[in-house]
């Protein structure tokens, strides 16, 4: 099955690009790595039969949000940091250890949860009759009408907040 290999390769690319995001010296390279992560995840969504979410991922995340990031990096004119100073302060060591433990705990809990759902580990590719875009459209304007309107209010507050915060004050 070629889709299985694509899934695994895309997953590996996503992890490598994520590590690159965290460790790059130049913020622009970080942003480009994050765009690679998002494109890889969009391919994963396509393979999971979520075409609408894949398109939204590309448009909103890789298109709008990352362009905003790159724009702000350009605006602030941030140079490259000389070296990534990772001083081993006690707080940072404790944080790294905690993140490692957290990863372990997350994986154990996740595998435990997924093993308790019957029949979930079978990979079923056929989802005929389940057109996810159509189903999402129907659900958005019937059952989820109130959350949909609330999200539009959140977006308006975001726009107004950005304008107010970005305004030059004397």
């Amino acid at each position: 099955m070629i889709t299985n290999y694509i899934t695994i390769i895309v997953g590996i690319i996503a992890v490598i690009a994520a590590i690159s995001t965290v460790l790059q010296k130049n913020p622009v390279y970080s942003a480009v790595s994050l765009i690679i992560v998002m494109i890889a995840l969009a391919i994963n969504y396509l393979l999971l039969n979520a075409e609408f979410i894949a398109a939204i991922q590309l448009i909103v995340y890789a298109g709008a949000i990352m362009v905003l990031f790159v724009f702000v990096i350009m605006l602030l004119n941030l140079g490259e940091v000389k070296r990534i100073k990772i001083e081993a302060t006690p707080g940072r060591i404790a944080g790294a250890i905690l993140v490692g433990l957290f990863l372990l705990q997350l994986i154990i809990t996740g595998l435990n949860v997924s093993s308790q759902v019957p029949g979930i580990d079978r990979f079923v590719m056929e989802t005929k009759g389940l057109d996810s875009t159509k189903v999402i459209g129907y659900a958005l304007f019937s059952d989820y009408l109130l959350p949909f309107e609330l999200v539009s209010i959140v977006l308006i507050v975001g726009i107004i907040g950005a304008v107010v915060l970005g305004k030059k004050r004397e």
Binding site: V15, F69, I86, G110
Partner: peptide, 23 residues
């Protein structure tokens, strides 16, 4: 599950060890 956990923890680690606000 494992891929998602890995990405989440890489993000959390990046938040802890980097000092650049944008990153």
């Amino acid at each position: 599950v494992i891929l998602s956990c890995l990405l989440f923890c890489i993000g959390a680690l990046g938040f802890i060890i980097r000092r650049n606000l944008l990153i």
